[in-house]
């Protein structure tokens, strides 16, 4: 994994490159490759979903079927994990899922950028979910919300320890939520780059050694398939955990 001649560092792909220099209130808010792919994720998903539903047939075609399937998938997730009280939050959860799914999937296209591999992006989203869910819980249950940290039916002696554990596990939520997505994307894309780099390096040796580059190349094909799975799975995991946190906030447990 050395940075030898012609060989790029596997983490170079995560570099933020400004495309349009901008600044706001002294902060650098340049439109970057990361921003471009956020725009693409929103743009492509919105264009796909709107154009698929333009004819709005009673019997859906292929495109409309896919759009409806995505809607039903998220709606079912909210219904089964949050219940009817989750309805007002459905548009947000749907946007979250679509944004992450398209972001992850578009990021798998060679030469594209994966904004979900940025810890600050995943952490901002996780923190928003965490703060939002906590505010909803406080708004709905008032001080009664704090009973959430006291497990029901626990022996009295253990309660102080359990409260500490519950509080820690509650505040770790945004960290685990964001790191899970970030680390998956970072690791997956790094792995792809390492194997691709290996294939190029071996083929560069020339002669019979070139045949050896077939091995990392085949591994790369398998890994790409795996990454497609991870991209979809991580979008799903982030969304379903958001649903579960929302459910805790609405119903305490």
């Amino acid at each position: 994994m050395s940075n030898s001649e012609g060989m790029h560092s596997p983490v170079e792909q995560f570099e933020i490159k400004p495309l349009v220099e901008l600044s706001l209130g002294g902060y650098d808010v340049s439109f970057t490759n990361s921003s471009l792919f956020m725009l693409l994720a929103i743009g492509v998903s919105a264009i796909f979903l709107i154009s698929a539903m333009r004819r709005a047939d009673m019997v859906p075609g292929r495109m409309q079927g896919m759009a409806e399937m995505m809607y039903e998938f998220v709606a079912e997730m909210v219904r089964s994990n949050v219940g009817s009280q989750g309805r007002p939050y459905f548009p947000f959860i749907f946007t979250l899922f679509v944004f992450l799914l398209f972001g992850n999937m578009l990021g798998l296209i060679p030469y594209s950028y994966t904004f979900t591999s940025q810890i600050i992006v995943t952490f901002a989203m996780a923190a928003f979910v965490f703060v939002g869910v906590t505010v909803i819980a406080l708004f709905k249950h008032g001080l009664h919300f704090f009973s959430f940290f006291v497990p029901a039916g626990a022996p009295k002696v253990l309660i102080p320890f359990l409260i500490v554990i519950e509080v820690i596990s509650y505040f770790v939520r945004p960290v685990s939520l964001s790191v899970r997505l970030f680390a998956n994307m970072l690791a997956g894309h790094t792995m792809l780059k390492v194997f691709a780099g290996l294939a190029v390096m071996i083929s560069g040796a020339g002669g019979l050694a070139m045949a050896g580059s077939l091995l990392p190349f085949l591994a790369l094909i398998g890994l790409t398939g795996l990454e497609v799975l991870v991209a979809a799975l991580q979008a799903y995991v982030f969304t379903i955990l958001t649903c579960m946190y929302l459910n805790d906030a609405l119903h305490l447990h």
Binding site: I16, P18, L22, L24, Y27, D28, V29, S30, F31, T32, S34, S35, M38, L39, A41, I42, S45, A46, T95, V98, F99, F115, Q118, I120, V121, A124, M125
Partner: peptide
Amino acid sequence: PSQLFWLVVLFGAG
């Protein structure tokens, strides 16, 4: 800052 700014703007628009 740039990433957060565009995340808020674009996710909000989305």
